[in-house]
Amino acid sequence: MEIQVKNQIKLAILSINENVAFARASTAAFSAQVDLTLTEIDEIKVAVSEAVSNAVIHGYGSDPHKQNYVELVMNLYQDKLEFIITDYGRGIANVEEARQPSFSSDPERMGLGFVFMDSFMDELEVLSKLGQGTTVRMVKLLVPRTEH
């Protein structure tokens, strides 16, 4: 049986640094329809910011002369929020290595992107193929809180 999606937003975002803030704000707006704490919404914003930044900076290499798009799909299910970030850029040679702390292809970056995604979300899945792109799927579980 297919699990029913209660709500869905799909965005195609031009791959420029300036749009990372928009992607982040849209996930906060999408998350606001469910009962989450401000801390949890902050966690989602950081995790999505990391995934979209990676797509813009590493996936497409911040090339302003190319019309590259990062896709952001947000799904609401009964028990979870799901965020899927896809780019069709250069891909990651070794996903396991890239997910390690302090791995970065740039000395001024700390290689903490995947660490934050991992720490702040309940599920993290990274699919990548060299020359074809990367998809990051993240889930935040909705834990019912007791009413007062």
């Binding site: 982040r24 902050d42 914003k45 930044s53 900076i57 001024e108 970056r109 700390m110 992107g113 660490v115």
Partner: peptide, 13 residues
């Protein structure tokens, strides 16, 4: 009001 690993990287730099 917000920081991610890009922001931390530049502080560390």
């Amino acid at each position: 009001s917000f920081i991610d690993s890009s922001g931390l990287g530049v502080v560390l730099g």
